[in-house]
Design a protein around this nucleic acid. Structure first.
Lengths: 295, 295
DNA sequence: TTTTGCCATTGCATTTCCGCACGGAAACCG
DNA sequence: CGGTTTCCGTGCGGAAATGCAATGGCAAAA
């Protein structure tokens, strides 16, 4: 059963009883309506209407079509309303992907967003592999490093995360304050597990700190922070996560070359939807203080 | 939501994931598919798909469309199967209209037909007004008189009903055997109520029998027969209904000019359907003896 | 890294489809 | 009963949709 438009035409004829009326509703010429009906009947091999001078009367087959097409018309109308409305309401799934280690920063914001828009189902994905926006795997991605420049993606600067080297007070009391990067001998470090990490401070560490001095590695930044707090060694922490709780000492202040630049990336097709826009706005509003602090 | 064909195109794209695949299934060119999608998205104001080099991925809106269109496709497939099959099966309503007075002859045949095709719901209509085949009011009509020649109707000869004048034995014993049409004075007649009846014997009676001698009139042929049987007077009865039951005497044998010719009329559009054909065949087969007897 | 293959896209030629206008028939209406 | 309206049916010219072929890009395979 191809050519759904002919069914739609036949539906209007069956509903209204005349070719002329159907043509007016459909916004086409009545000749077109006749041709559609003729073609459809020829294909089906069954007469859908009985023609007489006052109009068309649906046969049993035509009445069957009327019922089915009526339902279809309703379905499509509802679909159209849903689709058109969907762009203007904040509901449904919202998939956010990010690099690991931002949970501490992002999750409270996400929770606030969800509270403000209760119809949204949030999915917060942190995965090794890069989720692909062009396949619709996520609405918003937070990427690090140099600005991504996929053609169909909209990229906005998000935050510049400053990192500094911290140590626990306990560690400093025991081993003394190191002079970085000049005299680091004898000191222990905590670092990222990923040897290929493109995080600026990770690269700096690979180049500057001898590998045997890195006595603890983890892919989880929470674990890294915990390790530093526990006095395992010195390590990079984001300035935003150094303040709360624990007894940390800044061993070396943030350097510009250690900064991680974060980008908000959305696919062009989704970027302009109200849902995504609402999320981006909320995200920016609730990281304002970080941005100010960073500047 | 006009243009259902574009929805169908989008449905195939959403289902298959590629424009090329959809084009192949739909039997059109890739370019056409792309243009359909573009037009549909433009009209809805929402992107249905995210384009990437390996194909199209449905957005939420596209997935919504996929679900709805899937259901529609199923519905239409079933509709098509029903409509195509309907022509080849004997079921559903079958409307037969006829002139009054044939019930005694027809109803047993209709009953037999229904028994043979249990899926058929019969409607047997005898009405004053002529049902109009071109409005689909009936599948089969039985008409009397000269052959109807509506343009879109298929007309076949059905039966030639012979009529003769009968009287009850009781009546003959009392009033003697009349010599028709020469000496009818003093005799009583039973006739049709319809003064404008175009039945040949009715016309003959209007011309030949003085009105005051017609002492009983009815529109119902059963009543007429009952009246003749009861000895009210002489009257025309069909030869087919004179044989069974009662004690009737043929006062005057059938004349050719009294014959009523019956026609089977069907609308062209319905005539070739299996259902109508089956009914016509059954009707002819079970009136074979009448036709033989009549010839 | 190179190659191959699949896929979307776009300008151009063609065909199909559509709108227009006219004709004809039936019903409606004084 | 004749004028009027309201339908449907059809040939023709134009426009829109479609098909075609070339292009370019990306990804998986070699």
């Amino acid at each position: 059963m191809d050519n759904w438009d002919e069914i739609r035409t036949a539906y209007q004829v069956a509903r209204l009883g005349t070719v002329s009326g159907a043509a007016e509703v459909l916004g086409v010429h009545h000749a077109t309506v006749i041709r559609h009906i003729d073609a459809l009947e020829k294909r089906l091999g069954v007469k859908l209407f009985q023609r007489h001078t006052r109009g068309y009367t649906a046969t049993e087959a035509g009445q069957d079509l009327l019922r089915v097409a009526q339902a279809t018309d309703d379905q499509f109308s509802q679909l159209s309303a849903r689709i058109k409305g969907r762009g203007n309401e904040v509901s449904g799934e919202l998939v956010v992907t990010t690099i690991g280690g931002l949970s501490q920063l992002l999750v409270p914001i996400l929770a606030g967003f969800q509270a403000e828009y209760p119809d949204v189902q949030l999915r917060y994905l942190t995965s090794m592999r890069l989720f692909r926006l062009e396949y619709g795997e996520a609405h918003v991605a937070i990427r690090a490093g140099s600005p991504p420049q996929q053609p169909d993606n909209v990229v906005q600067p998000f935050l510049t995360l400053k990192s500094a080297i911290y140590g626990s007070r306990e560690y400093i009391d025991r081993y003394g304050m190191p002079d970085i990067p000049n005299r680091m001998a004898g000191h222990r470090f905590v670092g990222l597990d990923d040897q290929a990490s493109r995080a600026p401070f990770a690269q700096w560490m690979r180049e500057t700190v001898p590998a045997h001095q890195v006595v603890f590695r983890s892919g989880d930044t929470r674990a890294v922070r915990q390790a530093v707090l526990s006095g395992v060694g010195l390590g990079f922490l984001g300035t935003y996560e150094s303040t709360d709780g624990g007894d940390l000492v800044e061993v070396h202040p943030p350097l510009e070359e250690w900064e991680s630049r974060l980008w908000l990336v959305t696919h062009m097709d989704l970027h302009r939807t109200t849902k995504v826009q609402a999320f981006l706005k909320y995200l920016k509003d609730h990281t304002e203080h970080l941005r100010d602090e960073v500047e």
